[in-house]
Simulated assay, not measured.
Amino acid sequence: MPAPTALELMRSRYSAYVLGDTDYLRATWAPHTCPADLDVDPSASDAPRWLGLQIKRFSAVDDTHAEVEFVARYKVGGRAHRLHESSRFVRGDDGRWRYVDGDVSDR
């Protein structure tokens, strides 16, 4: 079942990163921005260990565009990191939301 909002899609995509579900990530990524070399194998030695997701802001720009600002915390090699991103989503003609791209921030 497709995510009813871009916010729910953001949450499900975070779960897909945690689980290493590359197929789901590709299926929910806008085709024109999806990278060819997407690899999120959680068992790889250098893979991040995801610790949590915090939604900072959600805004529906209109019926087909939305933005989600989030902070995802993770560890790599024992060091804690955070990914702070404002993500853009678009709803296609098929009614499904897809991730387009995002701006990473140091804030």
Rank of each mutant, 00 (worst) to 15 (best):
G20I: 02
T5S: 14
R11K: 15
D62S: 13
L51Q: 15
D41E: 09
T5K: 12
E67V: 09
P42W: 06
E8N: 11
L19S: 14
D37H: 13
V71C: 13
P31S: 12
R73W: 07
G20S: 08
H32K: 03
A6M: 05
T28P: 04
Q54M: 08
Y24N: 04
A27N: 12
V68D: 00
R49H: 12
S12V: 02
R73Y: 07
S59F: 09
H65C: 10
S45H: 13
V40W: 01
D37N: 15
G20N: 03
S45A: 15
P35C: 12
D21Y: 05
A60K: 13
D21V: 10
R26K: 14
L9F: 04
D41C: 11
E69Q: 15
A72V: 09
A30D: 10
Y17R: 10
D21R: 04
H32F: 15
L7T: 01
Q54K: 14
M10T: 11
L19H: 09
V61Y: 10
Y14A: 03
P31F: 10
T5C: 07
L38H: 09
I55E: 11
H65L: 15
H65Y: 07
S12N: 09
L7V: 06
M10Y: 01
T22D: 08
L53Q: 11
A3Q: 11
Y74E: 03
A36V: 09
C34H: 04
E69F: 08
A44K: 11
A6F: 01
L51K: 10
P2K: 05
L51E: 15
E69C: 10
L25G: 06
Y17Q: 05
A60E: 15
G20A: 07
A72C: 13
M10F: 01
L51R: 12
W29G: 02
K56V: 14
T28Y: 01
P31C: 07
V68G: 00
D62A: 08
R11P: 03
D23G: 06
Q54P: 06
T33Q: 06
Y14D: 03
E8A: 14
W50D: 01
L25V: 11
P2D: 12
I55Y: 11
V40C: 12
S43D: 13
D63I: 06
R73E: 02
T5F: 10
A60V: 14
Y14H: 13
Y17P: 00
D46G: 09
D21Q: 09
G52C: 08
L51D: 12
L25K: 04
A66M: 06
D62L: 14
T64R: 14
R49Y: 05
L19M: 09
K75Y: 05
P31Y: 08
V61C: 05
Y74P: 00
P2T: 09
R73D: 02
A47G: 11
V61M: 08
A60W: 08
V68R: 00
S43I: 08
S45L: 13
E67T: 14
Y17T: 05
T22L: 02
V40H: 02
F58S: 06
E69T: 14
S43K: 12
A16I: 04
M10D: 02
E8P: 03
S59K: 15
Y24V: 03
